[in-house]
Design a protein around this nucleic acid. Structure first.
Lengths: 338, 338
DNA sequence: CCTGGCACTCTTCACATCCGAGTGCCAGCG
DNA sequence: CGCTGGCACTCGGATGTGAAGAGTGCCAGG
């Protein structure tokens, strides 16, 4: 086990490196932090830390930089979450309060996160399956064409066109709409499939085909992989990434374009509490030089989606985590109000 | 006026520079293009072209590169639009045909454009005001809470929450819905404002406030600046931008985050036909080292929105223009079908 | 008007050098 | 036993020099 001082040395290395972006040497360390020991002692500690794999030297005669393992220890044991200041919290709230609809909430959240953390922000739309049905609407656009609109309690609206196998009268439509809503309104989307199972049975034989078609479109919309959407922002912050620019940034931009990758990324993160994935802990190779900080947010107790940021492994973890947590909290509040 | 040969020299310079990304000299030119004259002659021509401002030297003893003015001449007079090959056209069509809703169409279009041109793609959602109303739906979510849903013939759906000044009965709602639709269905959104002007007058005094509120929300939704949405993609292509990376790419990424800037960008482009804005022709400073190729697209004769790409001024103009035009054409077809 | 020749200009690259930050190790001290 | 100062060593980054090469402008001659 590492001695207390060695942990302090590691903490100091992480903090300095995050601040300066340059390998930090023993002398600089003793000067900037009063560790109460000489550079030589620190050098011994550093050698030990390097043996354990917490820090590394870019080349023989340079200072040390933290490894992914070093950051991991730092995040787990050495650093807390830095709470937002009161003015910051107020600013967050004010900014989010101005939103007019869900798209706007998400868009504002992305901007906010990107600005606060100076990193790339990712915000997932509230999951349908984890939300509650507020209303299901059916509109007849043509004799055999129906538009299906799902509305959740989080304000999300999803619509889908349905081509019916047979013309569907206005009366039948109203009937279906009423029965459907009486069954599912107020219920969780996840429960919808078995709530509507036997619905077609109550209809005339000639309408049954259409009812079935509408329902299957409804169920399709709820399939996990279709229903996930997200928004990203702050990609301009990637330019502050580091020195070996094109090589690092390229795969990150590519990853950000692949919603599938991002969704998986957020999906892998723990369901409750904040998750920090550092460097190679990320399954996707392009993100091996980044860290992802994510957390679930929700209107009530349960998380309905996640949000987070992607930044260089060399990031201000306490600050980032503080910002992410605070934003998630306020977004949850906003959603609960609407 | 420039002689025929000098124009050919300019064309050759543009083509070579676009291909190699390196300043092109007189000797290389005569070798790669059979101009039928010697390097010395070309040198004279180049000197003339430089005097006129079409090309420039990065430094005294280097080859020439085209200036914005040079590209402009190239695009206007020297190059055509390179049509897509048959397999390419088929691929475009296949790819777009798979879309399930408007969001999907737009998302696929962005991907497609980015892939074809290897540049950053921007696709605007069909403008509300330039589309036709298919249906206006009103849903009662709570006694004094109505959801307004607008559906266009292009498949776009916009929803807005309305807090009513007074409870609004289901009957009144149905009444309003019917009257509203009979007035505006099938009409252009742009005409909606004066079509509904006197609508409140037909209602009981106690409902009139709510009707007015609903209508004003409807009109707000149509205000130009609110109703424009767009999607971008292919930002990873920015990494192939050039050498002086961070400096060029940063402002571009920033511009791409500012939807306002992009909308203005597309807005400034001509309404019909393809527009190419080269380097400093772009009003927004951050895009001074990029060119923007854009064109309107629409389901029928008239353009309902625009799409385009942003790339380095050093781009393959004929190819890019060909891709942009082809994609716009097919998107129009898809929208018309839905 | 075109051409070959020529002197000139600059950038780029390779190579050599120097400097300093940082290290590891060791002997000595508390 | 752990901490310290001292010291030799390493290596990367900065700086400088020189040669090579690409490209130019200009001029005299066809």
């Amino acid at each position: 086990m590492l001695s207390e001082r060695r942990l302090q040395v590691l903490r100091a290395i992480v903090q300095d490196y995050v601040g300066t972006e340059e390998p930090v040497g023993s002398k600089a360390l003793t000067e900037r932090h009063n560790l109460g020991v000489s550079p030589a002692t620190v050098r011994n500690d550093m050698a030990a830390l390097e043996d354990e794999g917490f820090i590394a030297q870019p080349h023989t005669s340079a200072g040390r930089i933290p490894t992914d393992k070093g950051y991991r220890l730092f995040v787990d044991k050495l650093a807390g979450v830095k709470p937002m200041s009161a003015p910051e919290r107020r600013a967050i709230q004010n900014f989010l309060d101005g939103a007019v609809d869900l798209d706007d909430v998400v868009a504002r959240t992305v901007r906010l996160l990107a600005q606060l953390t100076r990193q790339v922000a990712i915000v997932q739309y509230p999951s349908l399956t984890r939300s509650t049905v507020r209303h299901v609407e059916l509109l007849s656009l043509a004799p055999a064409r129906v538009m299906l609109v799902l509305i959740t309690d989080t304000g999300r609206v999803e619509q889908r066109m349905v081509d019916c196998p047979a013309p569907f009268g206005e009366a039948s439509l109203a009937d279906l709409r009423a029965r459907l809503n009486s069954r599912v309104a107020g219920r969780r989307f996840a429960d919808v499939p078995h709530l509507v199972e036997d619905l077609p049975e109550g209809f005339d034989i000639e309408d049954r085909g259409t009812v079935t078609t509408v329902l299957s479109t409804l169920l399709e919309t709820l399939v996990e992989e279709n229903e996930e959407r997200l928004m990203i922002g702050g990609t301009a912050n990637l330019t502050r990434f580091g020195h070996d620019f094109p090589l690092t940034i390229r795969p990150v931009l590519e990853a950000l374009e692949e919603q599938v990758v991002l969704l998986k990324l957020l999906g892998e993160a723990g369901d409750s509490g904040m998750t920090v994935r550092i460097g190679h802990e990320n399954a996707y190779e392009g993100l091996n030089s980044t860290s992802v900080v994510s957390v679930g947010y929700g209107s009530g107790g349960e998380a309905v989606a996640k949000l987070g940021v992607v930044g260089p492994t060399r990031m201000d973890y306490p600050g980032t985590m503080g910002a992410v947590r605070a934003v998630a909290r306020y977004v949850g509040q906003i959603l609960a109000e609407s």
